[in-house]
Amino acid sequence: MTTAAEEDASRLETDDEWTVRLRHVALEKLPPEQLLPATQPAYVASWIYVFGVLTVSALVVIIASGAVLTIFGPSWWHTSTAGHFVNSIHIWSVEVFFFTMVVHLWGKFFMAAWRGRRRATWITGVVAVLAAVGAALTGYLSQQNFDSQWISTQAKDGINATGAGAFFNVLDFGQMLMWHIMLLPLIVSFIVAIHVLLVRIRGVVPPFAESSEGS
């Protein structure tokens, strides 16, 4: 049932509105049934398929525990047992994140998951790995302990050699902390979101056809 007001709104709508155009493109590329489907192709039947969602879950735990560490500040975990426990959650979720991400990458490689116009999905996945490595490095540099002192004095040489060290100073705790808690979480989350949307737009890659096997 549509109300008179709704009919009014649809009559006023024109196709040269940016907002309307965006909605049309979004609905065409990714209708709701495709964004949140109730079914998957019958070939989606292996434990290897769960490592993508496990990686996203680990990212959620990383961000949640990182948010708690942010609330209480960078010194909290050195002086409070509760803080130290949250730090333990944070670092172990990072280990789990990389663990599941690597297994996910291996699985997708052996499925040749870039086939059928899915190359952008593969590339965004690789970019996500790179951004995650940067996020992890700045996290290690934000620890304010021997480990962060050591890693910063070691990492400076490589980054200086690329010329980036002049602007991205790994010895500057303040700069590294801000990259770690602001820029890199945004970048990682954004790329992962694009990556997941691409999977929904293109669907899960079908198996190699029998006829093309070994040819």
Binding site: Q40, A42, V44, A45, S46, W47, I48, Y49, V50, F51, F99, V103, W106, G107
Partner: peptide
């Protein structure tokens, strides 16, 4: 874990 994921029969939602 990678090898196990390939070998263990899947009894999940699909």
């Amino acid at each position: 874990v990678f090898v196990a994921a390939l070998l263990i029969p899947f009894r999940g939602p699909g």
